[in-house]
Design a protein around this nucleic acid. Structure first.
Lengths: 178, 178
DNA sequence: GTCGGCATGTAAGCTGTTACATGATTGA
DNA sequence: TCAATCATGTAACAGCTTACATGCCGAC
């Protein structure tokens, strides 16, 4: 039940089109949530019915009309209510853990090479994230609130990839010892 | 597409009923995947149609009949094929991260107290996991393969909770500084 | 006598994925 | 000329959650 509220959060910051919102899911917001444009458009329609958002149509020359959505008062109330709800960890669905578990009874060679590949890929991603951190959020003391939040969002992602990497390397050792 | 294969993994170990399988999702297997009995029964029906599993009915006195499922040769082949498929990290959908992001524009008091609660809860869970590790997997050198896998499965869970906890504590500091 | 465990399922609804579909502009 | 970007959607399907539904047994 988070997707509509994440969209409301983005609209709370700025009125935007479905397209604008979709783009944000592949940048900063993407560190904690992914959504395709189909999901975004459908949610916007639903929220319009519930009167959580309203929209105006802006004609453009040579391009399709922009449907610009704005959050309503009802929408704002929904957002605040959502923030106050109890927190839970997301339910884990970890294919990698499942496959490792399966190696008890099955040949693990194929899994091992796939794991090695994901490890390499993850190391690359961590390097990129570190680079991004260095270039964008250098001097911690000079960051404004928005930047500090973005930095912590990035850090969340780094920490979980890092935790996974440590685990995966131990798994490789275990598989090699058999 | 992992659920059917996880069920196959469990059946590969032992023939079992839907009920047996469901129980396993709330113990060891639950560290990396959760599934309700409804999901399990439905998947078993689907897999029976695909001929990945077969079943025999065992009448019991005073209790409902047991439908005992066994993995077929086709099922085993599916399992091996699954293990060899490329690995990916699960798509993140982190409500907590989303809410933290929203505190940029919204009052964070309510969120802060919910976060504090989840932190305490997570610390408790980590203590329990540490306890479980101590009592069950004491002497690392004396464990058999199954136990080593179980221990690493538990460790995976510990590591990710731990990573989250570190992040959450930094978030609390950030929120308090405003 | 009520609650939890054993054992099975159906049905509705919500969320997410994949594929299909259109059409103009801009840059390589 | 081909691909990418802007900008909007529909439709079908897959997967997960929640609620509903039954019925016996043993323990407290």
């Amino acid at each position: 039940m988070s997707l509509p509220h994440i969209i409301l959060t983005l609209l709370h910051q700025n009125p935007a089109t479905g397209y604008d919102i979709t783009k944000q899911f592949s940048s900063t917001v993407g560190f904690f949530w992914k959504a395709s444009h189909q999901q975004v458009y459908r949610e916007l329609n639903k929220m319009a019915e519930l009167n959580w958002v309203s929209h105006t149509i802006e004609p453009q020359s040579g391009k399709p009309d922009r449907k610009v959505y704005t959050i309503t008062t009802t929408g704002s109330q929904q957002l605040s209510a959502w923030l106050a709800e109890p927190l839970q960890h997301p339910t884990t669905r970890d294919e990698c853990g499942a496959k490792f578990y399966a190696t008890l009874w099955l040949n693990s060679a194929a899994f091992q090479s796939q794991l090695q590949q994901l490890i390499t890929q993850t190391q690359d991603e961590l390097n990129q994230l570190a680079e991004q951190e260095r270039t964008t959020y250098v001097v911690t003391s000079k960051l404004n609130t928005q930047q500090r939040i973005e930095r912590l969002t990035l850090k969340r992602h780094q920490l979980s990839l890092d935790a996974w990497l440590n685990w995966a390397q131990e798994v490789l050792i275990e598989l090699n010892q058999r």
